[in-house]
Nucleic acid binder design. Structure first.
Length: 439
RNA sequence: GGAGGCGUCGCCUAGUCCGGUCUAUGGCGCCGCACUGCUAAUGCGGUUUGGGUUUAACGCCCAUCGCGAGUUCAAAUCUCGCCGCCUCCGCCA
């Protein structure tokens, strides 16, 4: 959630953000109303409770005096006073209880509204929908296969020739959009994993292997039970969710904690399987492993001072570029438009790799600055001197396996179906320089 | 899965049997001040978190003793449910 103070002091800022996202603006007015009602209800309850406590404090001593009273007149007087006090207390208790219930109810209504509100967009993000991104740069040049004298095969054809990808049996065993990596395909993933972790640790990241099943609180805290809910697998019997990215367990890792500002930034590189229902993508990317229900990914996740978040976002982007650069794959970097940001993100950069057989760029990594949005929901704060305030969280893909494998196979293929391994990756494959089809 | 124990404001801890004097004790750590060639030691003060109100500042109020509900004028304390941790047993990659 965003800072409630902004609602009270500068609601137009929220309205503008909602407008840029193409989302409901009237929610701001409903929030103002609910927030006011919530505070009034709370103040009313606080006042009644205060009175109740003051009376309660008189009752104890009075009961003591009653016991010690020596003569009957004093006893009768004390008893009368006690009875009057008790009657008042009983009445007050009823009213306090009612006020408390009203305050709780109003708080619930208000909190629910808050959770509907997406993060404030960064004003530098291009405004518009999915197609309105701004291309920041192109790196590398798409290969000229005509000059090389052959027609490129798509990643699935190459993967099958190499015995590296098996989608037919994936579907047989688990249904559509599931696949097996086998042989050099599996080795390629392990090599990419090790290369990614080597880079991450060299850059000060702490390697993490995270749970793939999380509680509703973790899923909701990271903002995945909003608009994205339909893409989340839920294990009903145990009320757990399968994560779509290790961003979820990495963000929730420090939930309900206060971190000393001196320890920031804290950087984690998380390895996990990722599960996505891919609802609403019927007919899209049905061939190969571009869009699948389960894949593995190394995710970078950072906790830092909000003042440093934009710089850190640039660093994450640079680390993503470093990795793709090392794999010698042409790509472009886009600044994602406001309407296509997730609810948590204030700004997002995607790297899209050139896919020769599609003649276009396809997303392979994504890095988001979620500012204090997730930290507020997950109650993660930083202590800076005597101030305690929410910190900023950011995430970025270091490597998402299937798509980077697609890019490697397609861009580095040869006429005979073999695939040249980029220099930087070879040490992680025992020095192998190419994968070659058998017979 | 079974049995038992435990959960207190950073860490440790007192309080829970028997409800009000808990505005939660003490130690450690941390912060400030004093003293001091320097450090250490010592002394004094401060130190949960969230919300509200006020704001020039101080302050005041409410909630918070794992979470939730109940009993009561009043709950860290009594009752019920849940969660987590530890020990032992069983099962198991």
């Amino acid at each position: 959630m965003i800072d409630p103070q902004i609602l009270r002091t500068d609601p137009d800022r929220i309205r503008e953000s909602q407008r840029r996202r193409g989302e409901d603006v009237t929610v701001v007015d409903r929030l103002i109303e609910a927030d006011t009602a919530k505070r009034a209800a709370q103040a009313h309850f606080d006042e009644l409770r205060n009175q109740q406590k003051l009376i309660g404090k008189e009752i104890g001593p009075l009961q003591g005096a009653l016991k010690k009273a020596s003569d009957d007149t004093a006893k009768v007087a004390a008893q009368a006073e006690l009875d009057a006090l008790m009657a008042k207390a009983t009445d007050l208790a009823d009213r306090t209880k009612a006020a408390e219930a009203a305050a709780n109810e109003q708080a619930e209504v208000t909190d629910a509204l808050w959770l509907q509100l997406a993060n404030l967009v960064n004003l530098d993000s291009p405004v518009g929908g999915e197609e309105d991104f701004v291309t920041l740069e192109h790196v590398g040049t798409p290969r000229d296969f005509a000059a090389d004298g052959f027609e490129p095969r798509d990643h699935l054809e190459i993967g099958e020739m190499l015995g590296a990808i098996d989608t037919v049996r994936g579907a047989k065993v688990s249904g559509s959009r599931f696949f097996y990596l086998r042989g050099v395909g599996a080795q390629l993933e392990f090599a990419l994993l090790n290369m990614a972790m080597a880079q991450a640790t060299a850059n000060g990241f702490i390697p993490m292997i995270t749970p793939s099943l999380v509680l509703p609180s973790a899923m909701d805290g990271t903002g995945f039970l909003g608009q994205a809910a339909e893409n989340v697998y839920r294990v009903e019997a145990d009320d757990l969710y399968l994560v779509g990215t290790s961003e979820v367990p990495l963000a929730a890792y420090h939930s309900d904690e206060i971190i000393d500002a001196k320890e920031l930034p804290i950087r984690y590189a998380g390895w996990s399987s990722c599960f996505r229902r891919e609802a609403g993508t019927y007919g899209k990317d049905t061939r190969g492993i571009i869009r699948v229900h389960q894949f593995d990914k190394v995710e970078m996740f950072v906790y830092c001072d909000p003042a440093d978040a934009e710089n850190e976002h640039q660093r994450l982007l640079q680390w993503e570029k470093d990795f793709i650069d090392a794999l010698e794959i042409p790509y472009r970097v886009i600044d994602v438009a406001t309407g296509d940001l997730g609810s948590s993100a204030a700004r997002k950069f995607d790297i899209e790799a050139w896919i020769p057989t599609q003649g276009t760029y396809r997303e392979v990594t994504s890095t988001s600055n979620t500012t204090e949005f997730q930290a507020r929901r997950l109650k993660i704060r930083m202590r800076d001197g005597d101030k305690t305030q929410p910190l900023a969280t950011l995430n970025g893909t270091l490597v998402a396996m299937p798509r980077i494998i697609v890019a490697i196979l397609e861009n580095h293929q040869q006429a005979d179906g073999s695939v040249v391994i980029p220099q930087a990756l070879r040490p992680f494959l025992g020095g192998v320089s190419a994968f070659t089809p058998k017979g």
